[in-house]
Design a protein around this nucleic acid. Structure first.
Lengths: 339, 339
DNA sequence: TGGCATTATGTGAACGTTCACTCTAGGGTA
DNA sequence: TACCCTAGAGTGAACGTTCACATAATGCCA
């Protein structure tokens, strides 16, 4: 009696072996480009593979090798504009090295998102990239310790044993932003913060505060926190500007919030950049069509994605972290019309 | 001698069985919520699972059941703004049903993208969703036939045996757009087309042409085709408007191109909407902050993603397509300042 | 008591692959 | 001839799970 539930039967290595009249081990050797196969045999096997349309079963292979040539990529939010760049970049790097990327969205509702990560493990990934994970450092640390596979955190600096973090230099970015604003004569800067995922947000928050204290005569900056969406940014900026009429600059946690701030300025009859300068983070394309075009901090998403992949790969290969694993990525300031 | 290459040993079902002092089959039954397990035994097993932190190995399970509870989601472009919505929606639906989604980006460079799809199969997915696939119908047909798993195409209507397509009603959308423009007194409409992926684009192209021929006195509309990016849209719109000074409306293939058209109008000193009306497709958030805010066609991405998942699921479960599989999704017109 | 369901649990094989090892034929060297 | 080496190919076991079947214990009824 057949067990196979339905559908087409995909050929197995044994089918190939039968057709080529060799053992399955020989087929396996051809697949792995093992040198000790006679040229004639190799040819016969390759023909059989072609003829049957055989594709090796990665699951069976992973079961015995304990290596799936697959990395997991766990993101908070696939609608995030960075996600696409980073994920594409990692996919490209992975493909180049014969790896496969399994992408998943962490479930925020799930208690601390750990459940989804565990499921990723049951899939047999060899390593995991967390795209700016909202998980707490302690959770990541525990996961890294018990998962038995390398872990990389992208987009957020963190000091966790055995975890590589690929992140932008927030201090440098804040210096660029605040320095630029001060150069343009701004004296009083307000901040639009992301109220979600404190673990992710904190570094930028602190860096901006420090830079403002350092570059301006005012020791602290007023802050309004909301979700990182246009409408929320608009609301937060309205509140901020109404409560602090002396502000002559607003820095958004990201471009989306900053674009909300542009709308808020319009609502309040404030001219940008004459009355208020607005700066964002991320360098999203749509910043260019904002009115006025948005000044923003850009980072090398693709390069960071590539580094993340290489970090995982080198960990898997020889267990050691790659060179310069914790170097911070330098941001650039893209000056446009809003400042 | 140990084989395990490195890292933590994850407990297996046998470890659990040892601790709970039962057979592995009993553990398996507890995992599957099989009724024929004594309550006391069930409790003991669950405690052992908890104590060891055991997670079943999906690959081993998939090997024997020939079912991985995993669907593949293949996208052209993860930076596409629809991608996030659709993918999130499918993930949510999948998670709800105990399924897992493996997301991958099709490699355009790869000869017709088939290689990536094949790799997806070696991962053992139970079904595949193609997010608006640039693959040719014949390739999809062949893939559906040889893969032995259900295939769904999202975002593009196609008539392929055994393939469910989840798509918006392009005819209705074109009628909405053109009808609206004609209502506002527009007489001469130009089209900004996507030059990439003819298979994906064709339906919208034809529908718009038909609607224009039907609603206006002009039998045909001038078309300019470029890549669906802001800068390309700007260039295409400039060309279009310069070559056809009589145009009083421009329809963009998507919001991104339409936003390029807004810039082009600004470049050419044309007022929107007084001189030229501009309409896009997709309803992306940033359309709201364009200047003026962009009129656009919106579709229910989440609902479509959900339907795509259910289509795959019902195929896997009983081999039959779900009810009303090929119904088209109705678009809505979101009227804003640009028309 | 015998007979027969019914419930709870265990056993061997299988899924498709690779690993560690064995076997064979042929050639070179002393 | 006797010996060892090497290239080429094969064999059984293992990876971690579930399936189909077998077994043991229990309850019920005649």
């Amino acid at each position: 009696m057949k067990r196979r539930p339905s559908g087409i039967e995909r050929p197995t290595i044994v089918d190939v072996a039968d057709v080529a009249d060799v053992s399955r081990q020989t087929v396996s050797r051809v697949l792995a480009d093992h040198p000790r196969v006679a040229p004639a045999t190799r040819l016969r096997v390759k023909e059989a593979i072609e003829k049957l349309g055989y594709r090796p079963n990665r699951m069976a292979r992973a079961l015995v090798t304990r290596t799936s040539l697959t990395f997991g990529f766990a993101a908070i939010d696939m609608q995030d504009l960075h996600f696409g760049d980073t994920c594409s970049g990692m996919q490209a790097a992975a493909r180049e090295h014969g790896y496969y990327l399994v992408v998943t969205e962490l479930d925020i509702d799930d208690e601390r998102g750990m459940g989804t990560l565990e499921t990723l493990l049951t899939l047999g990934v060899d390593g995991v990239a967390l795209f700016p994970s909202f998980l707490q450092d302690s959770d990541i640390e525990q996961f890294a310790a018990t998962s038995g596979c390398p872990v990389v955190v992208i987009g957020r600096e963190c000091q966790i044993p055995n975890v590589v973090s690929i992140a932008m230099d927030e201090t440098a970015a804040a210096d660029l932003v605040v320095g630029h604003l001060v150069d343009r004569g701004r004296k009083r800067i307000g901040i639009l913060m992301n109220e979600m995922f404190p673990e992710v947000v904190h570094g930028r928050y602190v860096a901006l505060h420090r830079a403002i204290a350092h570059h301006t005569t005012v020791a602290s900056a007023p802050v309004e926190a909301e979700r990182p969406k246009i409408s929320h940014g608009r609301r937060a900026a309205t509140t901020l500007l109404q409560n602090h009429p002396d502000l002559d600059a607003v820095v958004g946690f990201n471009d989306t919030m900053a674009m909300g701030a542009l709308l808020a300025c319009d609502d309040l009859g404030l001219r940008v950049p004459q009355d208020v300068a607005v700066v964002g983070y991320d360098g999203i394309t749509f910043g260019a069509i904002a009115n006025p075009p948005l000044t923003t901090i850009v980072q090398d998403s693709i390069g960071m994605a590539d580094a993340a992949f290489r970090a995982l790969l080198s960990r898997v290969k020889d267990g050691s972290p790659p060179e310069g694993e914790s170097r911070l990525w330098q941001p650039e300031l893209l000056i446009r019309g809003s400042s």
